[in-house]
Amino acid sequence: MKTTSSQKIKIGLFTFAGLVVLVLAIFFIGNQKSMFSSTFNVYGTFKNVSGLQVGNNVRFAGINVGVVQSINIVTDSSVRVDLTLNNSVKKFIKTDSKLSIGSDGLMGDKLVVVAPGGITSHEEIQNGGRLGSINPVDVDKIITKLTKVADNAESLTTDLSQIVGKINNGKGSIGRLLNNDNMAKNLESTVKQAQTTMKTVHATTNTLNEDLTAAQHNFLLRGFFNKKKKAAQAKQDSIKKVQEQQQKDKDKATKDKADKADKDKQ
Rank of each mutant, 00 (worst) to 15 (best):
Q246N: 13
T200H: 09
L83R: 03
N87F: 01
G172F: 07
L19R: 12
I143C: 00
L83A: 03
K166I: 04
T4G: 11
V164P: 07
V242R: 08
V74H: 06
K141I: 12
G165W: 08
L146V: 00
T147P: 00
V79A: 01
K230W: 08
T157W: 12
S100D: 02
G170E: 12
K145A: 13
F60K: 12
K250I: 02
Q126Y: 13
I125Q: 05
K98P: 02
L212T: 00
V137Q: 14
Q216G: 03
T157F: 13
V112P: 01
V54T: 07
T147K: 10
Q53P: 00
V54C: 03
L22F: 10
K8S: 10
S78I: 09
K257Y: 08
V21I: 14
K94Q: 04
I125Y: 01
T84L: 15
T144H: 08
I26M: 15
S133N: 09
L13A: 11
N86S: 13
P136E: 00
D256K: 09
K33V: 03
K252S: 05
Y43V: 02
R222W: 04
N218G: 11
V112Y: 00
H202D: 07
S6M: 14
F46H: 09
V113E: 02
Q233N: 06
I9P: 04
K98D: 05
N180V: 10
D181L: 10
V20P: 11
G175I: 07
R59W: 00
N87E: 09
V74M: 04
N226V: 14
N48M: 10
L83D: 00
D151N: 11
V42K: 03
G175R: 03
L187S: 05
V20D: 05
G118V: 04
A115P: 02
T75E: 06
